[in-house]
Design a protein around this nucleic acid. Structure first.
Lengths: 197, 197
DNA sequence: ACCTGAACACCGTTCAAGT
DNA sequence: ACCTGAACACCGTTCAAGT
């Protein structure tokens, strides 16, 4: 890559990170190009679609999440690992408001720049789910696609400012629903002691 | 209302119902006016905001849902009534793709044309939830706002074509999570026998 | 190789001018 | 009273023309 192209690329990515964090995943691409002092067509050259831009911004987060699934598998109890991963998924999607909708659409669109990452994330979640199921701590009538859908729904909740104050609590409710033999039978109280990180 | 105004109003509502059902809640208002053979400013005169148009289209459905809550309270067991209402909520929001996002935003925006309906719906759901809680068949650490958020999340799931095939199953999972003392302990199987209407 | 301005076909929203 | 075309300020996307 030529030096001037590299500079434009980096500048676009920097500015896009700020603008998308401010305005959400459907922010104006024109505005990003403007604020990066770059021609609009240059943005399109480097990132032919909105998904490509988001993919570049989220790639490291996605890779971390997939890698973390492997570490969790080695270091934590099956149910704990699953819940930590789920929490991390939601946090990852929360970086840019509205990105979760693109992420779920990408799963069935092989042409999307987000497709590969999303398929990999779903697979890594599915492995953690299967492990918990084998250990008898997750209900057996769910698969990776169900888990991905539930993760998406929780991320959507945290995107909605009118519902944001419920998301922590509802995360616990859904996490409990995925797991078996948990608090529900033992105590039935509302307080949650799921691993927070 | 003058006769020509009435005609325009009805025509707009007819066409809007078709277009929004086809293209979702963020369809082009210009397109609706065009297909209704009406000036764009006439649409704005009758429906000053997108929410106002949706409110006119959804009003009867919303009213039915609120009324139905009352009937369910009289005729059905508390847990059954709650689940039937929840299912109806999701079906109602599914009429126009993307409308659920406007519905949750409307709950904290008193200026929205959808505000009153949404507050009423949340309240009617809250009553059914409280009734089930008093009967001991719903978990006590949820309130009306939580139920509304869960209903919204389920409606969002059914909006996403990539996840649509999971929504029936995940509806059951979430419904089970709201209720207590259900299938989970008795059988632990995946088949569901919730009231379907 | 890479960049850019301008063009095209769309939006939502408003308003002066018509009947 | 009610309707309308046109205007304004925005989009996303593409492409010929520049260096």
């Amino acid at each position: 890559m030529r030096a001037d192209a590299r500079k434009n690329y980096d500048q676009l990515l920097d500015v896009a990170g700020v603008v998308l964090a401010e305005e959400g995943a459907d922010a104006s691409l024109r505005d990003i190009a403007r604020r990066a002092d770059v021609g609009l067509a240059t943005l399109y050259r480097h990132f032919p679609t909105r998904e490509a831009l988001l993919e570049a911004l989220l790639r490291t987060g996605f890779d971390d999440l997939t890698a973390q699934a492997g570490e969790l598998e080695a270091s934590r109890a099956p149910d704990e690992a699953l819940v930590v991963w789920l929490r991390e998924f939601v946090a990852c999607a929360a970086r840019y408001q509205g990105v979760v909708t693109l992420m779920v659409a990408a799963i069935e669109d092989p042409g999307s720049a987000l497709h590969a990452s999303c398929v990999a994330m779903r697979a890594s979640g599915a492995r953690l789910l299967a492990r918990a199921q084998e250990a008898g701590t997750a209900r057996r009538d769910l698969d990776g696609a169900d888990l991905y859908a539930l993760a998406g729904a929780l991320a959507w909740l945290s995107d909605q400012s009118a519902l944001a104050d419920r998301t922590d609590h509802l995360f616990d409710v859904v996490a409990e629903a995925i797991l078996v033999g948990s608090k529900r039978e033992r105590a039935g109280t509302s307080s949650s002691t799921w691993p927070s990180r």
